[in-house]
Design a protein around this nucleic acid. Sequence first.
DNA 1: GTTGAACTTGACCATACGGTCAGGAATGAT
DNA 2: ATCATTCCTGACCGTATGGTCAAGTTCAAC
Lengths: 211, 211
Amino acid sequence: MPQTSRTNSKKERRQENEALILSAAEKVFAEAGFGGATMQLIADVAGLPKANLHYYFPTKESLYRQVVQNIFQIWLQAADTFDQAEGPAEGIGAYIDAKMEISRRHPAGSKVWASEVMHRAPVIQDYLETTLMEWTDGRAAIVQRWIEEGRMAPVNPHHLLYMLWATTQHYADFGHQIETLNGGAPLSDAQWEEAKKSVKDIILRGIGVIK
Amino acid sequence: MPQTSRTNSKKERRQENEALILSAAEKVFAEAGFGGATMQLIADVAGLPKANLHYYFPTKESLYRQVVQNIFQIWLQAADTFDQAEGPAEGIGAYIDAKMEISRRHPAGSKVWASEVMHRAPVIQDYLETTLMEWTDGRAAIVQRWIEEGRMAPVNPHHLLYMLWATTQHYADFGHQIETLNGGAPLSDAQWEEAKKSVKDIILRGIGVIK
DNA sequence: GTTGAACTTGACCATACGGTCAGGAATGAT
DNA sequence: ATCATTCCTGACCGTATGGTCAAGTTCAAC
């Protein structure tokens, strides 16, 4: 069967197909976990024959690895908001906003990441030990400096970071639970704003930078 | 092959075996997810032939269902600390302590629960809609009352509850990440105390009941 | 001691899965 | 127009999995 679209070159179609497969894989891995996901289902979601998936990604594991690495990139980009900030209120507030936005826009990716870490990070353990550790220590140092400058309450920087991750990621990973408790409906725009505001209010007040 | 232990009656051994299987299943489901777990591996961990598992639990799903329900019971028990409290500082503080203790003592169970919810709760959706919803609304009402009595800052009760769940559960679900960032070592007793203290400090200050 | 119910288990089965491959179709360079 | 390369896919394969079963063993009641 010839390709439906004629306007694209081969190179473009390769990129399109890879993106299509990665997107489908993200959804399926998020909903079923690595073990529960099947190449056949990913193929169906992507609208491609299974054998075609294996042309672009030789194994299920290589496909999964790519999905996880993509999430990690998004995850790291949210860090920029932290660095560019002048002080704790702005930096941590913007970081919460950014991570809440990721939870809202990439819930599947967040779940894949959570699943990967929960299962002892078989694929990205090296990232945890290098990139993530450096990132964390760097941010902890910034927080520590803010504390020493008297710009926020003295809290353990690492546990503060864990709280930021936990709280924001919760809206993606446990989105189904939240939706159920919300009467079965996804959070509305206003409710998302309320969520962001609540998280920021409690944490920023908790570290003594507002009120 | 005859049973090794001769001191137990049949009824006792039934209970023992069921507990043995459930414990093994909890570990394996936590580490591999429902789809990735195999009855053979659970059997190996339990030290029983696979066919014997199917005698006690007819299907993989029924075994999984039992594991999830057990977790949910533990989860609900932590609620008592909330109810018996006289005010927000005591109630929420004790609830955080209780849930942190669950994360520490039952990390596998917490992961199974998280995994179940992340995958849209195929098994315990009815619990979410009934028991959990009632529990949540009841606790939210208590928080609301505390707010109206001027005993804590006006925050959205639901988002406060989500934050409590997220923050405490994070220490179980993302325990591997925390361990890695801790230099590869599990949190020591002192570090667990520090974690509890950090969470309580930030949240209790965040809702205006301390400092 | 006999008997029936509860328990145990090695061997087995059907299915579904990840992955392969041969052969054809489309594409781009010359 | 030719040809090498890339892309596509139905059919296929070996394996591992959830689950079954029949034949046995243990145990408690009488």
